[in-house]
Design a protein around this nucleic acid. Structure first.
Lengths: 339, 339
DNA sequence: CTGTTAGCGCATTCAC
DNA sequence: GTGAATGCGCTAACAG
């Protein structure tokens, strides 16, 4: 029972009316009588009609589709962002296309190219690690399509970036441990060449300062995100003897350290309180008692999505004035260097 | 510098040739002179031309796009399958669309509907847990579109299912421990109402039998995939005293057990060798020494993808005779109950 | 409220 | 080797 795809013409013919009326009826136009509308919908069901979006989109020059471009969906942070994006987008009647760059610039370029070809209405992107040249992204923008960056910031002029406020998040986490009574709090950081780790470290430092806790440089370990490094840091940390708290800027090191603590008979969180950034759900699996910052990845997605949709919908009417929002959780900013 | 999207007509006009020639040139038709071809390509670059796939797809009735429909991308098994699918598809010049059902039937239905509307050439799907009625999937098939099932099997007549051979995989894992010298191997199983866990248990039993190891029912624990359950099983297991190996049919229980072992000063894998199914990368994080079956999720993706593409490409010429493949790693079968 | 007409951008038949 | 004409399925402007 293989059917051929039905078109509005099939409906119009078998109903003795014009196809344009059918089109209007299907789109619930107010200028169609209830009776014909019902008849059309009935017939459509009967014939198993499914609108050909290709034709519709071609005609209206709108796909109601946005794309999310990111390194890889297997990272929890990203799949959570996607969930947020999808929720907002679906509510607004938009489809979401997910594209993985695998952090390969070449793939990112190809992806942008096919997104242009497929005329998606907008793009939300976390650029690949290899991306230093923005031509392929500007090509998209120059075609008058909105694009929003998240996670990895873009330093193009006049573009919208969305991220969590790492400084504030780290500040709050550190304060959390202080409120719990920790006096000697260590910090696992990452490379200080990366803004994210600088911000988290600064948040840690600021919280200590606020509560008049002296900063001890021996308490700060710059880890390279590997497990061995985490274990090494943990060993050094234990030699200090006095530490009762740990703020980790990265999960991997924190997890490795926690395991090491346990293997040494040290209880987490009783002997040492550990808190960190929950980029990854593994931490929760390993130790449900681990205090984690609820990194609002989902909110990033929702915010990015609603902002993008706003830009898309306003495109036809307004001039380009992307809104700029700032709050304690998320940073949304328009960098405007040269413009 | 907002440009308007260029069309083949823009190229044809500024070159003084017909748009049909431009179209042919762009598609590298053999019936176009090298010189005009070069001129066209040159001009296309100059104008920043990007083919409008909507129009092209509408005309050719082909989108070169396949869809993957699955519960959620955050599960490692699924994202790995996707990676396999994408690799094969991209090589063949196909795009891949990823759709999450979140295990909600309603979303699955909506997704299938928009996939029909968008005329994707084929679908690879792991059906939602709520899916017992297949109407929305048959609707897609009846429109003469190929669809391939993986992970969760579909018991529709005459459809293609792809999965790993759980029996064989479990058999091999168990044998692996036997070869390593284990004499008393326990088994963490799952609900025997689920075929997957029955198969894994049977593989375990068969391996024991082959090597003349007596089956001991006390060594078999039916866990419910929770962590507590895993820990409870681990406790019972340790009371047995003699166990030196463990085959786990599920990760969660295995991980919980391993942690418990360690907390009791028992070394994994020295005192007890643990092997299990690696649905989830967590196991590797917790204990890199854990022996895991390399569940060929990636291969499932590749296989599903190439099979689907085969069906798509043959659709125009052949009659429907989906190929059936069987090997030790993957099961690919066409269930043909009623047909 | 409904029909007529036209065209979105492209690929393909048929001429020459 | 190239041009002219046609239509994929749909929507929108213009009548009436």
């Amino acid at each position: 029972m293989k059917k051929e795809k039905a078109t509005i013409h099939d409906i119009s013919k078998s109903l003795g009316i014009d196809s344009s009326t059918v089109s209007r009826a299907l789109n619930d136009s107010p200028r169609v009588s209830k009776t014909t509308k019902d008849a059309v919908i009935q017939k459509a069901k009967e014939l198993g009609y499914q609108k050909n979006s290709l034709a519709s989109n071609l005609r209206t020059n709108k796909t109601h589709t946005i794309a999310v471009v990111l390194p890889r969906i297997s990272r929890h942070f990203f799949s959570t962002v996607i969930a947020g994006i999808e929720e907002t987008a679906y509510e607004a009647g938009y489809n979401v296309i997910i594209c993985q760059t695998l952090d390969i610039l070449d793939r990112e370029k190809k992806i942008m190219s096919t997104l242009i070809s497929n005329r998606v209405d907008g793009v939300i992107i976390s650029i690949s690690m290899e991306t230093t040249n923005y031509e392929h992204l500007e090509a998209y923008r120059n075609l008058n399509n909105p694009i929003i960056f998240f996670d990895r910031p873009c330093d193009l002029e006049n573009c919208t970036n969305i991220n969590i406020d790492n400084f504030h998040a780290s500040f709050m986490t550190t304060e959390h441990l202080i409120f719990e009574g920790c006096k000697h709090i260590a910090h696992f950081s990452g490379s200080q060449n990366i803004e994210l780790y600088r911000q988290r470290k600064n948040g840690y430092l600021a919280a200590l300062k606020k509560h008049n806790i002296k900063v001890n440089d021996h308490y700060i370990f710059e880890s390279n995100l590997s497990e061995e490094d985490g274990i090494n840091s943990a060993k050094k940390l234990l030699k200090l003897g006095t530490v009762d708290g740990l703020i980790s800027a990265n999960d991997t090191a924190a997890i490795a350290a926690m395991q090491y603590f346990k293997s040494q008979g040290i209880k987490v969180p009783e002997d040492i309180s550990v808190a960190g950034f929950n980029n990854d759900p593994i931490s929760a699996v390993i130790d449900p008692s681990l205090t984690t910052i609820n990194q609002p990845a989902f909110d990033i997605g929702k915010r990015a999505s609603s902002l993008l949709l706003e830009l898309i919908e306003s495109k036809s009417t307004n001039t380009d004035t992307p809104s700029t929002v700032l709050n304690s959780e998320l940073i949304i900013r328009n960098s405007s260097k040269k413009s």
